[in-house]
Design a protein around this nucleic acid. Structure first.
Lengths: 208, 208
DNA sequence: GTCTATAAGAAGATAGAC
DNA sequence: GTCTATCTTCTTATAGAC
C-alpha cells in the first residue's frame, strides 16, 4: 500500500540527508521535498523530526540484531568453522577482508548510517555507544573470535590475539573512513587493503 | 588588552561548543554565555557566526603551518636523523608512539579541533580535505619518511613501506577515535597502544 | 565594548479543507 | 494522505543608548 511506501521513503530520504549534512542541518521541508510531498504531510507519518531520526536508529538496530543473530549461529558452530579456518590461505584471507570492506562500504544503508553516526556520535552518549559497538567493538570481537580459531588451528601464529585483531581491523577501519569522506579514493584504498592483508598474512601466517 | 582577550576567548569557547555539538547546534547566545557577555556584544568582535568558525579554521591552519615547518626542518636534516634512527630500539619506538598519541589526544586545541572536523567533514568538501590532510595523509607521509630512514638503516625490515606505515599508524588512529568518543577508555587504549607498538617492533624489527 | 530592545527570517509543527 | 494557510518559537543579526 501507498502508506507504508511513503513512510519508508521518508526514512530513506531522511537518512541520506542526515548522513550528508547532519541532523541539525536537515530541515523537515528538505526531507519532504525529496519524498515529493509537502512538509505538513510528513506529520501524518511521523509526529516530529526527532521521531524520524528515532525510527532510523530503531530500524538499524533491528538490522543489527538480525545480523548478530546470523553471525552467532556461525560463530557458535565451532566445529564447522574450525574446518573452514583450518585450510585458510592468503587468498581466502584477502577475500575475507575484501568482503568485509565491500559490505561496510557498498551496502548503501550501512554506509549512510555510519556517516550519520560519525556526525552525531559526540552529541549524544547513546549514539556514541552505538557507533563504538557497531564499528569498533563488535567487529573486533567477531574477528578476534575468528582469529582465535585460526590460531588454535595453527593457521596464524601470535601470543597476543587482541593486538593481532587490531592489526587486521584498524587499517580496514581507517581505509573505510577515508572512503566515506572521499569516495574517489576507493581504488587507492582497495589496493592498500589487499597489500595490507597480504602483508598481515606474511607477518602472522604459519612459517613453513 | 581586554579586546584581544575577549576575541580569543570567543574562539576558544566556540571551539569547545562546536567540538561537542557541531556548528549548527551551537547558538551565538551559547557562545556569548560561555564568554560571559550578551550575544549582540559578540558582533563587535566577529561579523557573524560563520566568521567565528572561519577564524577557528584559520587559526588551526596557522598552527598547522608552523608545525609542518618545524617537522620539515627535522625531516630534511637527514644526516642528524639517520643517526637518531640508527640506534632506535623497541623502547624508543614505544616512546615515539606514546608521544604522538599523547600529543594528538591531550593537546586540548588539537583534540577539540579534530572532534569538530569529525562532525563537519561531510558537510563541506574543504573541511573534509583538511581532516584528511591533518589526521590521515600528513601523519602517514611523515611517518613513512621516518620509517624509510629506519629501513635504510636496517633497523626495520620490509619490502612495503607504505603498508608498514599504515600498520603502525592505523591502530593509533583508531584508538584516538575511541578516546575522542569515550575518554574513559583512555587507559585501555594506552595499554593497547603499547602492546601494538611492541608487537609492531617484533614483526618488523631487525631479526638478530 | 557592552548592554537592551527589536527586527527579520527560518524552521518545526498544527488546523482544517479536500 | 496531501494540501494551503498559519502559528509559535527560535536564532541570527542590527540599532542605538551608555
Amino acid at each position: 500500500m501507498q502508506t507504508t511506501s511513503t513512510k519508508q521513503k521518508i526514512l530513506d530520504e531522511a537518512l541520506t540527508l542526515f548522513s550528508e549534512k547532519g541532523y541539525a542541518n536537515v530541515y523537515v521541508s528538505d526531507i519532504a521535498d525529496k519524498v515529493g510531498i509537502k512538509a505538513p504531510s510528513l506529520y501524518k507519518h511521523y509526529k516530529s523530526k526527532q521521531a524520524i531520526f528515532n525510527a532510523i536508529i530503531e530500524e538499524m538496530n533491528n538490522r543489527f540484531l538480525e545480523q548478530a543473530k546470523a553471525l552467532n549461529i556461525t560463530g557458535n558452530d565451532a566445529q564447522a568453522d574450525a574446518a573452514i579456518y583450518k585450510e585458510i590461505g592468503e587468498e581466502a584471507l584477502v577475500q575475507l577482508g575484501q568482503n568485509l570492506f565491500a559490505y561496510f562500504l557498498h551496502d548503501d544503508y550501512v554506509r549512510r548510517f555510519r556517516k550519520m553516526l560519525t556526525i552525531e556520535q559526540f552529541r549524544d552518549v547513546e549514539l556514541g555507544r552505538i557507533y563504538a559497538r557497531q564499528y569498533v567493538d563488535d567487529p573486533l570481537a567477531y574477528q578476534g573470535m575468528m582469529f582465535g580459531m585460526m590460531v588454535a588451528q595453527g593457521v596464524l601464529v601470535t601470543d597476543n590475539i587482541p593486538v593481532m585483531t587490531i592489526h587486521f581491523y584498524a587499517p580496514i577501519y581507517m581505509l573505510l573512513t577515508i572512503c566515506d569522506r572521499e569516495p574517489q579514493r576507493e581504488a587507492e584504498a582497495m589496493k592498500m587493503l589487499v597489500e595490507h592483508i597480504r602483508k598481515f598474512n606474511e607477518l602472522y601466517g604459519r612459517k613453513y
